[in-house]
Each structure stands twice: as structure tokens, then as C-alpha cells.
Simulated scan of single mutants.
Amino acid sequence: MPDISITQPHSLSQTDARAAAQKVADKLAREYGLTCNWDGDVLRFARSGVEGALTLGERQAALRIKLGFLMSAFAATIEQKVAESMRKVFSN
């Protein structure tokens, strides 16, 4: 399975970082039909052919996505869109 790994530095409080992560998750859910749920400071998401987690740290957010065979054809597009979304929401 192809993996996408994105680390985004931030200077947000934990509360604001969690709100930013939720914005990313909401966008992923809308665009790719993912289900998302929090497990502490880790936002887990999945659907058929896609699974991943967004882990919040004090100064960074780390996203890891595993794509199945069919979704791997879209890996570059997915990575670009998600990286841009993370830059936007975690820079505030």
C-alpha cells in the first residue's frame, strides 16, 4: 500500500490544533467519504481502501495515510490537497 506522510509544524494551543485537525478531517470526510473519530490526540479515519491517522503534538501535526491499490492511483493528488489543507488550517 502506498503511504502518504505529512508533518506540519504549528504554534497553536492544543485546543486550537484539535479544531484545525477537525477541519482537515471534515474536508477529508466530505471529499473521500471517510469516517473519522478521535482517540485522545489522534484522529483516526478510514473507508474502503484508505486508512490513516492525524496525530497532534505540541508543535506539529503528523498525518499518515495508507492507500489501497485502487486509491493509490490518486496518491499524488490526495497528498497535494491534504498538504495544502494542513498548511492553511495549522498556520492560523
Score class of each variant (00 low, 15 high):
49 G>S: 04
57 G>F: 00
77 T>P: 01
51 E>V: 11
45 F>L: 10
82 V>N: 08
68 G>W: 06
55 T>G: 03
46 A>W: 09
51 E>A: 13
81 K>C: 00
87 R>C: 00
64 R>F: 07
73 A>N: 07
76 A>T: 05
76 A>M: 01
61 A>V: 00
72 S>V: 12
49 G>E: 06
52 G>M: 08
53 A>Q: 14
45 F>W: 08
64 R>N: 12
42 V>D: 13
46 A>D: 06
83 A>T: 10
68 G>H: 04
61 A>P: 02
74 F>I: 03
65 I>G: 05
73 A>K: 02
67 L>Q: 08
56 L>V: 00
52 G>Q: 14
65 I>S: 09
71 M>P: 05
75 A>P: 03
49 G>V: 07
81 K>N: 10
63 L>A: 02
49 G>R: 07
77 T>M: 11
47 R>C: 12
42 V>K: 12
46 A>Y: 06
53 A>L: 14
68 G>L: 03
55 T>N: 12
87 R>Q: 14
83 A>D: 14
82 V>C: 09
77 T>A: 10
67 L>G: 03
87 R>I: 00
87 R>L: 07
43 L>P: 02
65 I>Y: 09
81 K>P: 01
85 S>Y: 05
52 G>P: 11
58 E>P: 08
50 V>N: 11
62 A>Y: 03
48 S>W: 02
86 M>H: 02
79 E>W: 00
57 G>S: 03
55 T>L: 00
57 G>D: 04
57 G>A: 02
43 L>H: 09
83 A>S: 10
65 I>D: 13
71 M>H: 15
66 K>G: 08
75 A>F: 09
77 T>I: 06
74 F>L: 15
58 E>Q: 15
85 S>G: 01
87 R>M: 10
59 R>N: 15
49 G>L: 07
68 G>C: 05
82 V>W: 06
76 A>Q: 04
82 V>H: 04
76 A>R: 14
75 A>V: 10
57 G>H: 09
70 L>E: 11
79 E>R: 05
43 L>R: 02
59 R>D: 07
63 L>K: 01
64 R>H: 15
72 S>T: 14
65 I>M: 06
78 I>S: 02
64 R>I: 06
42 V>L: 03
72 S>W: 12
81 K>D: 13
68 G>I: 05
81 K>R: 11
67 L>E: 08
51 E>C: 15
50 V>L: 15
85 S>E: 15
79 E>K: 03
67 L>H: 07
45 F>M: 14
70 L>G: 09
